[in-house]
Design a binder for these strands. Sequence first.
DNA 1: TTGTAGGCGTTATCAG
DNA 2: CTGATAACGCCTACAA
Lengths: 349, 349
Amino acid sequence: MGRGGREKNGQPGARALDVAAAAGVSTATVSRAFNAPEKVAPEVREKVLKAAAELGWMPHPAGAALASRRTWLAGVLIPTLDNDVFASQVGALQTRLSAEGVTVLIGCSNYDADQAANQVRTMLARGVEALAVVGESHRPGLFETIAARGVPYVVTYSHRPGSSHPSVGFDNAAAFRRIARHLLDLGHRDFGLIHQPSIDNDRVVARIEGLRATLAEEGVALRPQHVREGPASIAFGRKSLRSIMDAPGPRPTAVVCGNDALAIGALLEARAIGIRVPEELSITGFDDVAMAEQTDPPLTTMRVDNAEIGQRAADYLLACLAGRQPSPPPPLESRLILRASTGAARSAA
Amino acid sequence: MGRGGREKNGQPGARALDVAAAAGVSTATVSRAFNAPEKVAPEVREKVLKAAAELGWMPHPAGAALASRRTWLAGVLIPTLDNDVFASQVGALQTRLSAEGVTVLIGCSNYDADQAANQVRTMLARGVEALAVVGESHRPGLFETIAARGVPYVVTYSHRPGSSHPSVGFDNAAAFRRIARHLLDLGHRDFGLIHQPSIDNDRVVARIEGLRATLAEEGVALRPQHVREGPASIAFGRKSLRSIMDAPGPRPTAVVCGNDALAIGALLEARAIGIRVPEELSITGFDDVAMAEQTDPPLTTMRVDNAEIGQRAADYLLACLAGRQPSPPPPLESRLILRASTGAARSAA
DNA sequence: TTGTAGGCGTTATCAG
DNA sequence: CTGATAACGCCTACAA
């Protein structure tokens, strides 16, 4: 309510028919002037455009969608906007898609699988013609529902070798194997781990597995008392580091963190309780946020080009929409950014 | 292309008519079962819902929009998603609106007035029924265009007393007057200022004016050599602090920053070049990001409840959509968060 | 409470 | 290159 149709001074109620009348042509020509300019004589097009401008007319998307069976809508499902990682991805995706006339619907799951399913349902109901979804651990049937509608989709952020879904992202397990290898090479044998909630989060699960697997290759295992799972915040990083260092038994010489916020918290707490980094303790993060190179010592972390992910996802979906059957792009590389928060393990213990 | 209509195994092509047939009712009843359940006998509704589920049918939004003249679409225009401040606002707005069945279109201007105008045009063309716009310094005619379409709107984030637009936000000038007063009370008389680009950004302009005005009340002015304008990054904060302290003439004893990133950069640089905070130099930020209480010393800054802004904006727009003529909500308060990065000015110089 | 019928604004087809 | 006309899928008076 509150709006209405062709009321008021007349402006917002113009239809193609009105423009056609004003320009002295048919509605078909009006439509062509906007959607297939090359099929209309230049001077006629001019007239139509002028008439449309004067009447303030633009094609009504509902009418257009109905007749053309195209909505020019795409959707992207992310865990949350409150995170640079996803914000960058969405930004790049949106930029690319809107350049092609596709409007992007953004849905946030708040890291909840049910909300994710609902968001996808809503977007489908809205008529999205393509979908980008972060991660692949979703309610069973989610991807089937999407595919059943004939909507092309792509999984973003993570790229699991062997996954049956087209994906644009990096191998989370490999990224953490890389971190583990780095620390093992420095001589570390006692590890701690502080990570974000792993439920419904395949990225986190993959990372942990990558870490464990690589440590196992050297006969090293994570002691349960050195593992903490909780909110991806600086505060939780602090709290966790303290409790890990207070745990009975030998202290870890390296603590791996699920992201930079946790690592920054750990770094701050280490300083606060007088543990020297990296001499006594190595700490690693993930994401390479702006703050990571400003900490003292600067943080060793992994960098992922999130804008690139968004861009490639958009390109892939655009290709699908164009009727091509693009081969899913290869995984991106995550890069280990070596800084001063990691160093050789203290010899012996 | 790539989709098509009622092809395939039949699923995605179901229409209201098919559901009606399957349920043994008319399309009118199918429509009512979805949009006005109370007007349909419970058992009939059941039948319809079951038939719809079996056919995988949902009302096609284009058809619905066309017939009902309602799109259930709202838009929000923000400078960028790469910023917690706006991400929080949008998140809250979206949560609130989608609870009422309204889908939110998000447009980013990238701090560019032309892009902003384009985004608004696009959203209007898409049929948004309400609009939230960050800030009020936009291309002339932008708000008129919106109003001419009969679309209710609200300006968010900033609330300028005397503005002709309904707005949900806080008084940016007042917020910086508060900061200025705080520092003046501590005895400071020599100020520096590091701020983000002010072009097309009324929030920043208002803050600077608030600062200047309050300083002027005490006969204090900002020296040009102590003012820096540039990207809102930690790096620019560092660079700026150094060059301000290197400038000829008396050094400022307090540096006001346009946001926390700049302030954190300034803090880090001060430490790096051996200037003690707050003994020799006071530094203030804006936003109260998570990192602000973790710096050494913790940062004095201003806090704004961005989620609250998003929520109130949504409520206001919802009220407009419901046909009520809500009075624009009162401004929110920004809160000075006193921490250890500000202290008494060194006596004398 | 339910069915009938007309129209929402545009695009696509097919002549001309 | 342009015009007439039939969809597109749904909602909503209005009538029953």
